[in-house]
Protein backbone atom coordinates (compact mmCIF):
# COMPACT_ATOMS: atom_id res chain seq x y z
CA UNK A 1 0.00 0.00 0.00
CA UNK A 2 1.28 3.43 -0.89
CA UNK A 3 1.02 5.93 1.91
CA UNK A 4 0.74 9.45 0.55
CA UNK A 5 2.67 11.87 2.71
CA UNK A 6 1.11 15.30 2.77
CA UNK A 7 2.28 18.52 4.32
CA UNK A 8 0.23 19.43 7.40
CA UNK A 9 -2.94 21.30 6.58
CA UNK A 10 -2.59 24.89 7.71
CA UNK A 11 -4.94 25.80 10.50
CA UNK A 12 -6.80 29.07 10.95
CA UNK A 13 -3.86 31.43 11.24
CA UNK A 14 -1.72 29.43 8.82
CA UNK A 15 -4.46 29.32 6.25
CA UNK A 16 -5.04 33.03 6.64
CA UNK A 17 -1.36 33.69 6.12
CA UNK A 18 -1.32 31.48 3.08
CA UNK A 19 -4.29 33.26 1.59
CA UNK A 20 -3.29 36.85 2.29
CA UNK A 21 0.35 36.96 3.37
CA UNK A 22 1.56 35.00 0.41
CA UNK A 23 -0.63 37.00 -1.93
CA UNK A 24 0.91 40.19 -0.63
CA UNK A 25 4.37 38.70 -1.08
CA UNK A 26 3.49 37.85 -4.67
CA UNK A 27 2.20 41.36 -5.24
CA UNK A 28 5.49 42.72 -3.94
CA UNK A 29 7.43 40.52 -6.33
CA UNK A 30 5.51 41.62 -9.41
CA UNK A 31 5.70 45.25 -8.32
CA UNK A 32 9.45 44.82 -8.11
CA UNK A 33 9.45 43.85 -11.79
CA UNK A 34 7.44 46.98 -12.58
CA UNK A 35 10.01 49.15 -10.80
CA UNK A 36 12.93 47.37 -12.46
CA UNK A 37 11.58 48.17 -15.90
CA UNK A 38 11.48 46.06 -19.05
CA UNK A 39 14.31 43.65 -19.72
CA UNK A 40 13.55 43.04 -23.38
CA UNK A 41 15.37 44.06 -26.54
CA UNK A 42 13.37 46.11 -29.01
CA UNK A 43 14.52 43.86 -31.79
CA UNK A 44 14.51 45.58 -35.16
CA UNK A 45 15.96 48.75 -33.67
CA UNK A 46 18.03 47.15 -30.98
CA UNK A 47 19.93 44.04 -31.97
CA UNK A 48 21.39 41.48 -29.67
CA UNK A 49 25.18 41.53 -30.09
CA UNK A 50 26.52 38.20 -31.27
CA UNK A 51 29.56 36.34 -30.01
CA UNK A 52 32.72 36.32 -32.18
CA UNK A 53 32.24 32.64 -33.02
CA UNK A 54 28.58 33.08 -33.96
CA UNK A 55 27.80 31.19 -37.15
CA UNK A 56 25.78 33.53 -39.30
CA UNK A 57 25.66 34.06 -43.07
CA UNK A 58 28.78 32.93 -44.96
CA UNK A 59 31.30 35.32 -46.38
CA UNK A 60 33.92 34.83 -49.04
CA UNK A 61 37.20 36.66 -48.65
CA UNK A 62 39.84 38.28 -50.78
CA UNK A 63 43.50 38.82 -50.03
CA UNK A 64 43.80 42.29 -48.63
CA UNK A 65 46.92 43.28 -50.53
CA UNK A 66 46.29 41.89 -54.00
CA UNK A 67 42.49 41.83 -53.87
CA UNK A 68 42.57 38.35 -55.37
CA UNK A 69 39.94 35.89 -54.22
CA UNK A 70 41.09 33.37 -51.69
CA UNK A 71 38.79 30.69 -53.07
CA UNK A 72 40.51 28.37 -55.51
CA UNK A 73 37.38 26.46 -56.49
CA UNK A 74 38.39 23.14 -54.93
CA UNK A 75 34.80 22.24 -53.94
CA UNK A 76 35.89 20.84 -50.59
CA UNK A 77 33.24 22.97 -48.91
CA UNK A 78 30.59 21.52 -51.21
CA UNK A 79 31.80 18.05 -50.36
CA UNK A 80 31.73 18.76 -46.63
CA UNK A 81 28.31 20.35 -46.68
CA UNK A 82 25.77 18.00 -45.04
CA UNK A 83 22.84 19.96 -46.43
CA UNK A 84 24.29 19.98 -49.93
CA UNK A 85 23.63 23.66 -50.39
CA UNK A 86 26.92 24.80 -51.95
CA UNK A 87 27.53 24.71 -55.67
CA UNK A 88 30.97 25.41 -57.05
CA UNK A 89 31.99 25.46 -60.70
CA UNK A 90 35.66 26.10 -61.11
CA UNK A 91 37.64 27.54 -64.05
CA UNK A 92 41.31 28.00 -64.90
CA UNK A 93 43.05 31.23 -64.11
CA UNK A 94 44.84 32.75 -67.10
CA UNK A 95 47.56 35.40 -66.97
CA UNK A 96 45.13 37.91 -68.57
CA UNK A 97 42.26 36.95 -66.37
CA UNK A 98 43.51 36.18 -62.89
CA UNK A 99 40.78 35.98 -60.27
CA UNK A 100 42.26 33.91 -57.47
CA UNK A 101 45.73 33.31 -56.12
CA UNK A 102 45.82 29.62 -57.03
CA UNK A 103 45.70 27.75 -60.33
CA UNK A 104 41.94 27.75 -60.57
CA UNK A 105 39.14 29.94 -59.28
CA UNK A 106 35.45 29.56 -58.60
CA UNK A 107 33.57 30.71 -61.68
CA UNK A 108 30.27 29.99 -59.92
CA UNK A 109 29.95 29.93 -56.19
CA UNK A 110 26.41 29.69 -54.87
CA UNK A 111 25.07 28.96 -51.44
CA UNK A 112 21.39 28.15 -51.10
CA UNK A 113 20.68 29.70 -47.73
CA UNK A 114 17.21 28.22 -47.55
CA UNK A 115 18.91 24.84 -47.21
CA UNK A 116 21.97 25.82 -45.17
CA UNK A 117 21.93 24.58 -41.58
CA UNK A 118 24.78 26.86 -40.44
CA UNK A 119 26.91 24.01 -39.18
CA UNK A 120 30.16 25.64 -40.23
CA UNK A 121 31.65 22.52 -41.85
CA UNK A 122 32.42 24.48 -45.00
CA UNK A 123 34.52 26.85 -42.97
CA UNK A 124 36.41 23.92 -41.43
CA UNK A 125 36.86 22.17 -44.75
CA UNK A 126 38.30 25.20 -46.59
CA UNK A 127 42.08 24.89 -46.92
CA UNK A 128 42.53 28.60 -47.66
CA UNK A 129 40.13 30.18 -45.16
CA UNK A 130 38.28 31.56 -48.15
CA UNK A 131 34.83 30.96 -46.69
CA UNK A 132 33.95 31.86 -43.13
CA UNK A 133 30.73 32.14 -41.21
CA UNK A 134 29.86 35.79 -40.72
CA UNK A 135 27.72 37.46 -38.10
CA UNK A 136 24.65 38.22 -40.17
CA UNK A 137 21.50 36.50 -39.08
CA UNK A 138 18.84 38.63 -40.79
CA UNK A 139 18.37 36.74 -44.02
CA UNK A 140 14.63 36.48 -44.48
CA UNK A 141 13.35 37.29 -47.92
CA UNK A 142 10.18 37.12 -49.95
CA UNK A 143 11.32 34.64 -52.57
CA UNK A 144 13.17 31.38 -52.24
CA UNK A 145 15.26 32.25 -55.26
CA UNK A 146 16.47 35.37 -53.48
CA UNK A 147 18.01 33.15 -50.84
CA UNK A 148 20.51 31.70 -53.30
CA UNK A 149 23.54 33.84 -52.63
CA UNK A 150 25.99 34.24 -55.48
CA UNK A 151 29.72 34.81 -55.26
CA UNK A 152 29.38 38.57 -55.65
CA UNK A 153 26.90 38.76 -52.79
CA UNK A 154 29.07 36.62 -50.57
CA UNK A 155 32.19 38.66 -51.36
CA UNK A 156 30.51 41.99 -50.65
CA UNK A 157 30.36 43.56 -47.25
CA UNK A 158 27.04 42.80 -45.55
CA UNK A 159 24.56 45.66 -45.89
CA UNK A 160 23.64 45.78 -42.25
CA UNK A 161 26.30 44.87 -39.79
CA UNK A 162 25.21 42.88 -36.80
CA UNK A 163 26.68 44.24 -33.59
CA UNK A 164 29.50 42.16 -32.21
CA UNK A 165 29.65 41.44 -28.53
CA UNK A 166 32.39 43.33 -26.76
CA UNK A 167 34.75 41.91 -24.20
CA UNK A 168 32.70 43.16 -21.26
CA UNK A 169 29.30 41.91 -22.41
Amino acid sequence: MIVVQRAPEPGGAGGFYRAFGETLRGLKTTFGRLVEGPQTYQYPEEKVPVYPRFRGRHRLHRFEDSQLEKCVGCSLCAAACPADCIRVVSAENTPEHRVSAGERYAAVYEINLSRCIFCGYCEVACPFDAITMGHDYEMSDYNRSDLIFTKEMLLAEPLERTPLRTESE
Binding site: R33, G37, P38, Q39
Partner: peptide
Protein backbone atom coordinates in the same frame (compact mmCIF):
# COMPACT_ATOMS: atom_id res chain seq x y z
CA UNK B 1 0.83 47.53 -21.24
CA UNK B 2 0.84 47.22 -17.47
CA UNK B 3 0.87 43.44 -17.59
CA UNK B 4 3.92 43.71 -19.80
CA UNK B 5 5.64 45.96 -17.29
CA UNK B 6 4.83 43.58 -14.48
CA UNK B 7 6.43 40.81 -16.50
CA UNK B 8 9.54 42.77 -17.37
CA UNK B 9 8.57 43.64 -20.95
CA UNK B 10 7.03 46.59 -22.77
CA UNK B 11 3.71 45.33 -24.01
CA UNK B 12 2.36 46.60 -27.33
CA UNK B 13 4.39 49.64 -28.45
Amino acid sequence: KLLGRFQGRYGPN
